[in-house]
């Protein structure tokens, strides 16, 4: 049914879309996966039981149980029975090349390029405001996220996402920052793939330096251009890689 332009606006219609109970389970899973990726929870570590987890996260025991089961299926946790039993973070839990390749195979070119455009728009807005609002301490923090050439792909990927989050932090816009976090979640483990390529690391290291320099020089247009190139480097790499595999 077409609601616009004569009827109610489409954004209003979205308000009445039922909230799926699935959402809460995914949210709990997302939190745990994020805790693993950022090193807060590590392989072999015991997770709290269902009741404790439910209490800590303020969800029902049913939701916690479903989340644990979903994490088990995804291979993030393993469960052992018996006296020393419980749920543990799995051994091969960190984002792997295999999982990233699976994700790349599932995506269409359209999805990748559209996600890239959205990411560019948000990152560019952050960079331009950051260049107007930065102080010396901001620039020092930003530079501390630029990884060294010998960093491994996992570390490189984390550093890239932290760097862009810091640009959003310097821009001091909560909305832009939240949008950036959402986009990074949508990209998922995909960004691990280019980080294994030395050529990509050289290109992005130079671009990270350019963004930091432009933010420091309070040059909004230059910051925006450099950050767009940075996002494009990732999208282009993924599109090229995908076409090779088809």
């Amino acid at each position: 049914m077409l609601l616009t332009p004569q009827g109610a606006s489409r954004s209003l219609a979205a308000v009445f879309t039922p909230i799926k109970s699935r959402g809460l389970v995914d949210e709990v899973c997302g939190r745990i996966e994020q805790a693993v990726e950022t090193g807060l929870l590590t392989s072999g570590q015991r997770l709290p039981n269902e009741t404790e987890l439910a209490a800590a996260l303020g969800v029902s025991a049913v939701t916690a149980r479903e989340a644990l089961s979903q994490l088990r299926t995804a291979g993030i946790i393993r469960t052992a029975r018996g006296r020393n039993g419980g749920s543990f973070i799995a051994d091969d839990v960190l984002p792997s090349r295999e999982r990233a390749l699976d994700q790349l195979r599932e995506l269409t070119r359209l999805q990748i390029s559209d996600l890239g455009l959205h990411y560019q728009a948000i990152a560019a807005a952050c960079a331009s405001v950051a260049a107007r609002r930065s102080d010396a301490a901001d620039v020092a923090t930003l530079r501390s996220f630029i990884p060294t050439a010998e960093a491994d792909p996992l570390h490189w990927r984390l550093a890239l996402s932290e760097f862009l989050l810091e640009v959003a932090a310097i821009a001091r816009s909560a909305r832009l920052a939240r949008e950036l976090i959402r986009l990074q979640a949508d990209l998922g483990t995909l960004t691990l793939l280019p980080c294994a390529d030395a050529g990509y690391r050289v290109t992005t290291a130079a671009l990270l330096g350019e963004v930091a320099a432009a933010v420091e020089a309070r040059a909004p247009a230059a910051a925006e251009a450099a950050v767009k190139d940075l996002v494009a480097a990732t999208t282009d790499w993924l599109l090229t890689e995908q076409s090779k595999r088809h």
Partner: peptide, 13 residues
């Protein structure tokens, strides 16, 4: 709603 912030961190040693 008193959302417990960063609660997962309490399970990390």
């Amino acid at each position: 709603e008193l959302e417990h912030v960063d609660a997962l961190a309490n399970f990390s040693p």
